[in-house]
Design a protein around this nucleic acid. Structure first.
Length: 420
RNA sequence: GCGGGCGUAGCCAAGUGGUUAAGGCACCGGAUUGUGAUUCCGGCAUUCGGGGGUUCAAGUCCCCUCGUCCGCCCCA
C-alpha cells in the first residue's frame, strides 16, 4: 500500500456530508442556548491518569482502547476516549464549582482504538451535556428532555428511550455480590464471554446478547430488587417527571453502563436502524466522579450522543445539500478579470455568496459551470464591458428556463447598489 | 483481540486461465474563437489494493499482507 491514505478507522467528512453535520451542530447549539447550557472546550489530549482514574482501570475503554503515548517530556498522554472526565477536570481545575452548579455542553472528536464497524470509527464525534452540582431528580428529567427534544427537532424517527437505575454505589456493591454468587453456581451455563466478565465486570453480563445467557438471567436476582428504598423513591421521581413531560420510555432492568462512574439513573436512546451499534445517545448520573477526580463532593448527570450514528439516521431521511451561491461571476480578458476580482470581493463584503470563475475559459464553459452551481445571477464581464465601464447582470433562473435570458447593462456602482 | 463477506479509474461496473482490460456516471477539451438544455466528436486504468507463488499464459488459481464492510467484544 504505497498510496497515502487516512489511518484505519479515521474517516474524512467530504463536502457532500458536511451540510448535514452543520445542521446537527446548529440545532444542538440552539437547544443548549434555550436551556441555558454553556459551551466548554477542553483539550483533545489529556494526562493518561485522568481517564484511568475517571473511567476506571478495569473498563475496556481504559484497558485496551486508548491511544496512549509518551510525549517528549516523558509524560503519558492519551487522546480523549470520551468527554466527561475532561469536563470534570476542567471544572475542578478552574474552580467552576465554587461559582454554583454548572450546565455545560461540549462537542468534538473522541478516540478509541477499536475494530471499525457500522457506526463505529476510531476517531468519532460526540456532543455531550454535563450538569454538575445537580442532585435533584428533576435534573435527570431535564437532562433527558434536552436530548429527547434535540433528537425530535432534528427529525430522527423511530427512537426509543430506555431507562434503568443502577442505585447508589452501596446498592450496586451489594447487588454485585448477590449476582456473582448466583452466577458462580451456574458458571457452566454461561457463554465464554460472560464467564470472563464474571471476574472483570459482572454487571455487564446483564446486557449480554447471548440468548442462553439471557434465558438464564430471567431467574437471577435483579438490580431493581437490590435498590434501597431511597434509591427506589429517587428513581420513581425521575420516571414521574418524564411522564409529566410526555416523554415515552421503557424500563430496562438489564441496562448497564460501561463506564465505572455511573450511578442511579442510566439511560440510552436507541434506534433499530443502526445495526449492532444501536445507541445514539447514552448517559446517566455520576455523583461520585467529581470527588474521585479530586474535587468537592458533587452530584452530576450527563449524556453524550454519537454524531456519526445520528448522521446515519438523518442521511436515511434525506441529505441536506450545500446552499448555491447567489451570484456567479463570469469573466474573460486582461481588462475584465481584475475587475471581476474586485467586484466579487465587493459583493461578498456586502454579504452575498459569490462564486468567481477563475479558469479564464471560453464564456460557454463558464456559463455551463454557472448553471451547474445553481446560482441565481450571473455577472458577466468581458473586455468590451470592462472598456465601457459596465457589467452584464443576467438572471439564470428566469421563468422561461434556459439560455437567452435578458441581460442588463449596469455600471459597477449600479450593480453594487442593486445588491446592497 | 476473535469470526465472516468483499477489493477492477473519482463513483457504479463487465470480465468464470488465452492476443491491445467492455460499458455507464462524473470530469476535461472541441463542434459553438462572447452566453447555460439536448446532441455529436475526442480525452480520461501500460493495468485490476500491495507482495510472492503456480502456469507456456493470471484481473481470473494459491499463499501472505493491507484496506473495507458486517457480526462478536465494547460503546456514543
Amino acid at each position: 500500500m504505497d498510496k497515502l491514505q487516512s489511518l484505519r478507522g479515521m474517516v474524512d467528512l467530504l463536502p457532500q456530508s458536511t451540510p448535514l453535520w452543520q445542521r446537527i451542530e446548529a440545532t444542538a447549539r440552539a437547544h443548549f442556548a434555550r436551556a441555558a447550557i454553556e459551551e466548554i472546550r477542553t483539550p483533545v489530549l489529556e494526562a493518561t491518569e485522568l481517564f484511568a482514574r475517571g473511567i476506571g482501570e478495569a473498563t475496556d475503554v481504559v484497558g485496551k482502547e486508548m491511544y496512549t503515548f509518551v510525549d517528549r517530556g516523558e509524560r503519558s498522554c492519551t487522546l480523549r476516549p470520551e468527554g466527561t472526565a475532561s469536563v470534570v477536570r476542567a471544572a475542578i481545575q478552574h474552580g467552576l464549582l465554587s461559582q454554583g452548579p454548572q450546565r455545560l455542553w461540549y462537542g468534538g472528536p473522541m478516540f478509541r482504538y477499536e475494530r471499525p464497524q457500522a457506526g463505529r470509527q476510531r476517531q468519532f464525534h460526540q456532543i455531550g451535556l454535563e450538569m454538575l452540582g445537580f442532585a435533584d431528580p428533576r435534573s435527570d428529567v431535564e437532562a433527558i428532555a434536552v436530548a429527547w427534544d434535540l433528537l425530535a427537532d432534528l427529525g430522527v424517527q423511530g427512537l426509543a428511550l430506555e431507562l434503568n437505575s443502577l442505585g447508589s454505589s452501596d446498592d450496586r456493591a451489594r447487588y454485585r455480590e448477590q449476582l456473582v454468587a448466583w452466577l458462580s453456581e451456574r458458571a457452566d451455563q454461561l457463554d465464554p464471554d460472560s464467564q470472563d466478565r464474571l471476574q472483570r465486570n459482572p454487571l455487564r453480563i446483564l446486557d449480554s446478547k447471548n440468548p442462553d445467557t439471557q434465558a438464564l438471567l430471567a431467574d437471577a436476582p435483579t438490580l431493581a430488587e437490590a435498590l434501597s428504598p431511597e434509591s427506589r423513591d429517587r428513581f420513581a421521581r425521575v420516571t414521574h417527571g418524564l411522564t409529566l413531560l410526555g416523554i415515552p420510555f421503557q424500563l430496562n432492568p438489564r441496562l448497564v453502563r460501561g463506564l465505572d462512574y455511573y450511578s442511579h439513573t442510566a439511560f440510552e436512546i436507541t434506534s433499530t436502524q443502526l445495526g449492532a451499534q444501536a445507541t445514539v445517545c447514552g448517559g446517566g448520573r455520576y455523583d461520585g466522579l467529581v470527588e474521585q477526580l479530586g474535587g468537592p463532593p458533587t452530584a452530576a448527570i450527563g449524556w453524550a450522543l454519537g454524531m456519526e450514528r445520528l448522521a446515519i439516521l438523518l442521511a436515511q431521511a434525506g441529505a441536506a445539500t450545500a446552499a448555491a451561491p447567489e451570484v456567479y461571476v463570469v469573466s474573460r480578458g486582461e481588462q475584465a478579470e481584475p475587475l471581476a476580482l474586485q467586484l466579487a470581493r465587493q459583493l461578498r463584503q456586502a454579504g452575498h455568496a459569490v462564486d468567481l470563475d477563475l479558469t479564464g475559459a471560453a464564456f460557454g464553459k463558464q456559463f455551463k459551470r454557472a448553471d451547474r452551481t445553481g446560482a441565481r445571477w450571473a455577472v458577466v464581464i468581458g473586455d468590451s464591458e470592462a472598456e465601457a465601464g459596465v457589467v452584464l447582470l443576467k438572471d439564470l433562473r428566469g421563468a422561461s428556463g434556459e439560455a437567452s435570458q435578458p441581460e442588463q447593462r449596469l455600471s459597477p456602482e449600479e450593480l453594487l447598489q442593486r445588491f446592497a
